[in-house]
């Protein structure tokens, strides 16, 4: 436990609309992992049509159904875009899953050809070819964390963490970067990732993590959860607040179970 009373502010963007499957697990994981270290995580939310919200240290947006995404996007564009851009520039942490990830890009074109301009924060665009379940990227996914990020994740986590991320993807949208300034979060070993061609998944760009991985993403990937907490702590309190390690056996057992199931680790 830390000597000082530490606290972080967590802002859930549109929890009522953008919560398609298991995304609450990410919120709970950050909350518990802070609590177990004696850090208070204050949770607040940004909702449709309300401008009464607090600033945060960590922002999170999950995936949504297509119709909800339109509503959210309109609202973002009309009243919250500038605020979020300011927060990004002041190095606040952002975790964006699925629909949230798509909305931070340049465009989202749905299966009917409707084009939504994204927030334009990440140079990427997404196109959904059809409404057919067979055309979706759907199933368990395993990635190897991009070498550019792994060093930081390792230093932050303390003990030697897994070099993989595990999750479940379920998305129609095919996402491509529109320039080469972005680095993926991971290299796809099993599954599709951003699209069914390039074998890369998500993005880790400065203080933004975007990903298609549900599962939920953070419970079975404690090293990634801790990266977000560690970065937010450093941002708020400075370098000396190194993250205290936790007992993560149950987390790694669940992580390894997927690695074995998908043939990345040998079963023994």
């Amino acid at each position: 436990m830390y000597k000082e009373k530490l606290s972080l502010k967590f802002v859930h963007l549109y929890p009522d609309e953008m919560n398609i499957y298991g995304d609450m697990g990410n919120v709970l994981t950050l909350k518990r992992r802070c609590e177990w270290r004696g850090i208070r995580l204050e949770i607040s939310k940004v909702t449709l049509e309300s401008n009464d919200f607090k600033k945060g240290d960590i922002y999170f947006m999950g995936g949504g159904q297509d119709n909800d995404m339109y509503k959210v996007f309109e609202d973002l564009k009309n009243s919250k875009k500038d605020f979020l851009k300011e927060e990004l520039e002041s190095k606040k942490q952002f975790l964006l899953i699925c629909g949230g990830f798509q909305l931070f890009g340049n465009h989202f074109i749905d299966f009917q050809g409707r084009n939504i301009n994204g927030l334009g924060i990440l140079p990427l665009e997404t196109k959904a070819p059809s409404d057919n379940l067979h055309d979706r990227c759907l199933g368990n996914i395993v990635t190897e964390i991009h070498s550019k990020h792994f060093e930081e994740i390792k230093n932050n986590y303390g003990e030697k963490p897994s070099k993989y991320l595990v999750g479940f993807e379920n998305h129609g949208g095919q996402t491509y970067y529109t320039d080469n300034s972005l680095t993926p979060l991971g290299k796809v070993l099993v599954g599709s990732g951003n699209n069914s061609k390039e074998k890369i998944e998500g993005v880790l760009h400065e203080n933004i993590i975007g990903s298609y991985m549900h599962g939920s993403l953070l419970p079975k990937n404690p090293h990634l959860a801790d990266l977000i907490i560690g970065r937010a702590l450093t941002q708020k309190y400075g370098e000396e607040f190194k993250l205290e390690p936790l007992e993560d056996k149950i987390e790694w057992d669940a992580h390894k179970a997927i690695l074995r199931k998908m043939g990345i680790l040998n079963t023994d």
Partner: peptide
């Protein structure tokens, strides 16, 4: 259902 994410919801 192959996706067990729902237990987190």
């Amino acid at each position: 259902g192959k996706d067990v994410s729902w237990i987190w919801d």
